[in-house]
Simulated scan of single mutants.
Amino acid sequence: MHDDAQLTRQQVSDAVSPLGWRLVLGAVHTEVDAPSLARAAEVAAIAAAGVDPDGQDRLTVDVRAERAMLRLMPPLGGLVTALDVRLAREVSEALAAHGFTTSPGRGDRAGRLQGLEIAIDALDIGKVRPFWQAVTGYIGEVGPSDLTAGLIDPLGRGPAIWFQQMDAPRPQRNRIHLDVDVPHDEGEARVRAALAAGGTLVSDARAPAFWVLADPEGNEACVCTWQGRD
């Protein structure tokens, strides 16, 4: 398969899940346990050496004292390709050769792989989008993606922003909400946790693509997965 081949979300998930990676919001993520900051930095170095020159701008690593979080995605957003899947496999193999294991999180750290989006409802997306791009310093995604008119942090630090088309004003409902994107096998558990914490289920009509939830005062958030989007 050519590295630039476009894959369905199901194909990506099927390919990376056995390696301990999960597809979340246009990227594949994994976690590697490390007993110290120095060992987590070693994980980052091994992963960086494990991607070929074409993958240097696709890999990011969050290094902490007890673990390293790895993410592979196209540098300017868009859908995951066969290249990202190949790099995930090669990074996992390189880490395994040094005694490290890629996983979606274990024990009390299970479910920490996630992505965060800010969703803005708009009657005229083309009119409001330039403001949000200017005020955040974000850039537009290149090519197709999971975001509508998406804006992303060029340094990959902040949450993505997308715009939801409105067909009529809704003055009594919040116009900005959070989307929490989790691995496909964590969606229902996250919804149950939110309900147990006092939330209510507004709609599960599009589940497992997303569940619409509300806090006790009616402010909404969505729990999302890649499923049901191909």
Results as ranks from 00 to 15, higher is better:
190 R>I: 13
144 P>M: 13
147 L>R: 09
196 A>Y: 02
113 L>A: 04
96 A>N: 09
105 G>M: 03
217 E>Q: 15
155 L>V: 14
100 F>S: 05
92 S>W: 00
157 R>P: 03
141 E>D: 01
106 R>M: 12
180 V>K: 08
102 T>R: 02
162 W>Y: 15
140 G>D: 15
119 A>Y: 02
152 I>C: 00
98 H>D: 04
171 P>F: 07
183 P>A: 14
119 A>K: 04
130 P>G: 11
210 F>M: 08
137 G>A: 11
177 H>N: 03
154 P>Y: 10
167 D>N: 13
124 D>C: 07
155 L>C: 14
169 P>D: 13
150 G>I: 06
164 Q>L: 00
147 L>Q: 08
107 G>W: 00
156 G>C: 04
147 L>F: 04
159 P>Q: 01
174 N>P: 07
172 Q>I: 10
178 L>P: 00
199 G>A: 15
126 G>N: 05
215 D>P: 12
196 A>Q: 08
176 I>T: 02
125 I>W: 01
131 F>L: 15
196 A>T: 03
155 L>I: 14
103 S>G: 06
98 H>S: 02
90 E>K: 01
215 D>Q: 13
129 R>Y: 06
199 G>C: 14
124 D>T: 09
195 L>M: 11
187 G>P: 11
93 E>I: 05
116 L>H: 00
109 R>Q: 12
176 I>C: 06
195 L>Q: 05
213 L>M: 14
138 Y>N: 12
165 Q>S: 12
97 A>W: 00
115 G>S: 05
104 P>I: 02
215 D>M: 13
99 G>K: 01
166 M>T: 00
155 L>H: 15
138 Y>M: 15
157 R>F: 13
154 P>F: 07
178 L>T: 08
187 G>A: 15
193 A>S: 03
171 P>D: 00
159 P>T: 09
136 T>F: 06
205 A>Y: 04
104 P>H: 10
128 V>Y: 09
131 F>A: 15
187 G>F: 09
154 P>E: 11
206 R>E: 11
124 D>W: 06
101 T>Q: 07
192 R>A: 13
101 T>F: 08
141 E>Y: 11
215 D>I: 13
204 D>L: 01
150 G>T: 06
94 A>S: 12
175 R>M: 01
110 A>E: 13
103 S>D: 03
112 R>N: 06
102 T>K: 00
208 P>D: 01
131 F>E: 15
174 N>Y: 05
194 A>K: 11
112 R>K: 05
201 L>I: 14
136 T>C: 05
88 A>E: 11
109 R>V: 01
94 A>T: 03
176 I>S: 05
106 R>C: 10
122 A>D: 08
143 G>Q: 09
184 H>F: 15
169 P>Q: 02
202 V>M: 14
116 L>Q: 11
144 P>Y: 12
141 E>S: 08
105 G>K: 05
164 Q>A: 10
154 P>S: 10
98 H>M: 05
139 I>Q: 15
215 D>V: 09
145 S>E: 11
106 R>G: 13
180 V>D: 04
180 V>C: 10
113 L>N: 04
194 A>F: 12
189 A>R: 13
105 G>A: 07
173 R>D: 01
111 G>M: 06
142 V>M: 06
176 I>V: 01
115 G>Y: 07
